[in-house]
């Protein structure tokens, strides 16, 4: 009895220690970024455009470019992930097709982002002759995060009790109606969670967009599709951190990193009311 209680306590302490270590790691990373970048943050840094090879000016168009890429990625990933989830869960049953789709999703999730970048380069830049384009970058990012979004959606779909689907079928609803009226609303929280995770990843990726969508300077808001590059925070940080020996430019890189972290947190906070509402509705099921 005493031994069992000790083991239980040991397990609790170990779990708490691991949880604390994870939180410490997160706060350390965010803390370093905020601490090093805080000096660069000012209204002009957020609202001005880049000047002096990154040593001067601000990151307004980098924020706008990142937002455009992330929004495009969301618009690409969301319908594809919904279609994959509903097709896999609503139409393929428990058969081989469903297992194959899930295996492909997990495999795609493990593909390095640079491979997506190269595929985008081959397709959009070399084949379609778009040169660098925000749309190409958004599509590549969107396809890259599809596995993350779709897997989270599928997990939630799998949690819907079979008798709920049976009840809807028993009322005479067609599969398409069950998909839209039962499966989608009840698994929407998984979709939003997956999308947030995916977009947070997309916002910080450099490799998939460096060949297809972004340049270091000279771009503003794009007005077309082909030859319409954008600026983006992760690529800006990457170039400044790698190539700049100017301390002022490095300070700006830390500032840009802090803005990127704030963007990701902002995205999660902005989606919080939606997630809470979906969660409340799901609890009522």
């Amino acid at each position: 009895m005493k031994r069992r209680r000790m083991l239980d306590r040991l397990f609790t302490v170990a779990m708490a220690a691991f949880g604390l270590a994870t939180l410490c790691a997160l706060f350390t990373v965010v803390g370093i970024v905020v601490w090093r970048g805080a000096g660069a943050i000012s209204p002009s840094f957020l609202l001005d455009e880049l000047r002096g090879a990154g040593a001067d000016g601000g990151v307004f168009y980098h924020i706008a470019g990142t937002a455009i890429l992330v929004a495009t990625a969301a618009l690409v990933a969301l319908p594809i992930s919904i279609a994959i989830g509903l097709m896999s869960h609503g139409y393929l049953g428990d058969g081989r097709g469903r297992r194959a789709i899930e295996a492909v999703l997990h495999a795609l999730n493990a593909v390095p982002s640079i491979v997506f970048g190269l595929a985008g380069l081959a397709l959009f830049v070399n084949t379609f002759r778009w040169q660098k384009s925000w749309l190409a970058g958004g599509i590549v990012l969107g396809l890259m995060i599809v596995p993350t979004v779709a897997v989270a959606f599928l997990e939630k779909l799998r949690a819907i009790p079979a008798h709920t689907i049976e009840a809807a079928s028993g009322l005479g609803l067609r599969r398409s109606m069950i998909s839209t009226a039962v499966l989608l609303p009840q698994a929407a929280s998984g979709l939003v969670t997956g999308l947030l995770l995916g977009l947070a990843r997309a916002a910080g990726e450099t490799a998939p967009i460096m060949f297809t969508a972004v340049i270091f300077s000279g771009a503003t808001i794009p007005h077309g599709i082909d030859d319409s590059p954008v600026l983006a925070l992760p690529y800006h940080i990457f170039v400044l951190a790698q190539d700049s020996f100017d301390p002022a430019a490095l300070q700006k890189a830390w500032g840009a990193a802090a803005v990127l972290v704030a963007l990701v947190f902002g995205l999660a906070i902005a989606a919080l009311p939606l997630r809470l509402r979906i969660h409340e509705e799901a609890k009522r099921v």
Binding site: T164, E166, A167, L171, G172, A181, R284
Partner: peptide, 20 residues
């Protein structure tokens, strides 16, 4: 089958409520 199930409704052992 969907039309048949509309004409031949079913009530299960465990009640199922939909959101709302």
């Amino acid at each position: 089958p969907d039309d048949l199930r509309r004409r031949v409704g079913i009530v299960f052992q465990q009640p199922v409520t939909f959101p709302g």
